Simulated assay, not measured.
Amino acid sequence: MSVVNHLPVDVDPADLEHVARHVAVLAGRLIVDERPVDLGVAQTKSSRTDIVTEMDSRSEQLLRAELARLRPDDGVLGEEGTSHSGSSGITWVVDPIDGTVNYLYEIPAYAVSVAACVGDLADPERLVPVAGAVFNPVTRELFHAYAGGGARLSVGEHERRLEVSAQTDPALALLGTGFGYDSAKRARQAALLTDVISQVRDVRRIGSAALDLCSIAAGRLDVYYESGLNPWDRAAGQLIVAEAGGVVRGIDAEPTSDLVVAGPQVLVEQLAAWVLPARTWIDPAREA
């Protein structure tokens, strides 16, 4: 059944995409225009390297306030705040700065990610995105899509449709991936990568899952995998990939925090065949 069929009858996904674009750009401008000169780490989360800056918090506050103004009956799930359900059947999944370490170091590869989803907020892994936007405020690139409407990249007044790579040969594929904040998990991920890297053209680690997925949609990367992505890391990006003609899967079918593999179907199937047998790189308690 089409994702659109799960939408409330009075909701147009194109309208949700418009809202996603608006709030993503608003927050993106905030984190660039109002970045403190002496920006530092405000707090940490899962480890000393999993950081939050004051601008992460300010960006999420802005996103929540603007969404409450425009869509007061919707729910919100954000990285830096508590979630709340709404009465409309729509939940906004937001990442106020995806790529916070890049942001801290002024590496221009970070983004605001905003997605409108359907599903039960009590099971956030299973929320299904129906509209979304990812905005890189440094390059001013706005990636956006809605279910059934295709994916596009807008820069100022210029807009173009996105399509995933046509590459089918893994040996010629540029692979994207990422690493977790926990040092033991990074070591396992690196060990797997040593097996994979010889089977592809080369590997890129950008540092923002949202931008990795958008790079897949734009054909800048051929295929991508990562473990440990939360719903706010991937919701908008996975829709943009799907609307650009790509496939996004997990260990069994749908992507989850355990695994995301994205790209053209042929490459996704090949990459999954490489990484799935070695499941201990995802979780050492798993059976291979």
Rank of each mutant, 00 (worst) to 15 (best):
E66Y: 06
E66I: 01
E66D: 11
E66L: 00
L67I: 10
A68R: 14
R69P: 02
R71I: 07
D73F: 12
D73T: 15
D74C: 13
D74Y: 02
G75K: 00
G75Y: 08
G75I: 14
G75C: 11
V76Y: 03
V76W: 02
V76G: 12
E79Y: 01
G81L: 14
G81C: 13
G81P: 00
S83Q: 07
S83V: 03
S83E: 08
H84R: 14
H84L: 04
S85M: 09
G86S: 12
G86D: 04
G86H: 03
G86L: 01
S87M: 00
G89D: 03
G89H: 01
G89Y: 06
I90G: 02
I90T: 00
I90A: 04
I90D: 12
T91H: 11
T91D: 09
W92G: 01
W92K: 08
V93P: 10
V93D: 01
V93S: 08
V94Q: 11
V94A: 03
V94S: 00
D95C: 00
D95R: 11
D95F: 12
P96Q: 10
I97A: 08
I97Q: 01
I97K: 12
D98P: 06
D98E: 11
D98S: 02
G99W: 01
G99A: 11
T100A: 07
T100K: 09
N102V: 06
Y103M: 04
L104F: 02
L104Q: 08
Y105P: 02
Y105S: 14
Y105M: 15
E106Q: 14
I107D: 13
P108G: 05
P108W: 04
A109Y: 04
A109L: 10
Y110L: 10
Y110H: 04
Y110A: 06
Y110F: 15
A111P: 05
V112Y: 11
V112Q: 05
V112T: 09
V114Q: 07
A115P: 07
A115F: 12
A115R: 08
A116T: 06
A116W: 02
A116P: 06
A116Q: 00
C117W: 08
C117N: 03
G119S: 03
G119W: 06
G119V: 00
D120V: 15
D120Y: 09
L121P: 10
L121R: 04
L121H: 02
A122T: 15
A122G: 13
D123T: 13
R126P: 01
R126I: 04
L127P: 05
L127I: 06
V128I: 15
P129Q: 08
P129F: 01
